[in-house]
Design a binder for these strands. Structure first.
Lengths: 157, 157
DNA sequence: TTTGTAAATGGAAACCATTTTCAATAAGGA
DNA sequence: TCCTTATTGAAAATGGTTTCCATTTACAAA
């Protein structure tokens, strides 16, 4: 769990150092943007947010940092089918529990839902265990997404 | 269920006509490629396959046809994180049952698994019903994917 | 069978998110 | 403070996918 208090270095500095990465203003700003947003953002979204407080940032750095964060397991990368990836903290700072996504294939709206997630997680855990053994896979992550038409798009058709 | 026998028009002609689409050699060839392959293919894969028997085909047509097929619900479109989409028939012609995917984040290998899928489907059905009501979504499709390291990549690291 | 017309097509060009290149800069241990 | 190496931003390259547009085709109507 993130400790956003002002005392001591942010919770993730240790993990960063441990992996041999340096702490830089850019990385700090990108992570903060993700923590504050606490929901899925595109690379461009993050670039825009960070750019207001740290104009020197480059889009390239955003992509590079996100790749690191994904590889470290701090950030999830999602594809909702609109041609750009979305990123979100694995553990949101405040409200966010683990959640899954409901994607409208028409307007691309995405709803985070936490309902039923406990049941889903339970089943996934069991499935993961079985799959790991059978296929000797080391599973680190999963995605569940439902696709369909949201209330608005249903009526407009 | 597809009826691949030589008698009468292929099973999907009716659905095509019903949607106001014309039957063309290109579309026929693309659908046949998907039926024969019975596993996920990229647009380029399909283009290559079709090109051998029908050299006039254009990559553009492959993309256009795939989009139609996805919208009609005959074909699934997947993203495995390697920058190109994969397509597969919703109902494979022979062996294929409904399956989910196990994706190696290192070498991008994809394993189709059918184990546990019955349990998964059961839960998903229930979840779908609940979500549809709560968010007034009309759910048409779902994706479950596990990510991790395959046996080979685990050892190489 | 012929004809009319909108749908479908292929090739080239455009698009655009992401990646790579490279020279300049900065982090952090010595 | 200095040195080494990772990091950076800008610009260019990449590559899957989409758009444009002139030509061709499917197929319903005559």
């Amino acid at each position: 769990m993130p400790r956003g208090n002002g005392l001591g270095p942010p919770w993730w500095h240790g993990r960063f150092r441990g992996c041999g990465y340096k702490i830089t203003l850019g990385r700090e700003a990108i992570l903060n943007a993700l923590i504050k947003a606490d929901q899925h953002l595109s690379a461009e979204d993050i670039y825009q947010k960070v750019h207001t407080t740290y104009p020197a940032i480059g889009l390239t750095t955003v992509y590079r940092t996100l790749e690191i964060l994904v590889n470290m397991g701090l950030v999830f990368k999602f594809d909702f089918g609109d041609g750009r990836a979305r990123y979100e903290l694995v553990e949101g700072s405040k409200k966010s529990h683990h959640h899954h996504h409901l994607v409208c294939t028409n307007c691309k709206r995405v709803i985070d839902y936490t309902d039923f997630v406990d049941d889903e997680i339970g089943l996934l855990k069991k499935t993961e265990k079985g799959l790991s053994k059978k296929y000797s896979f080391e599973i680190t992550n999963h995605v569940i997404q439902f696709y369909g038409l949201c209330g608005q798009c249903k009526n407009t058709k």
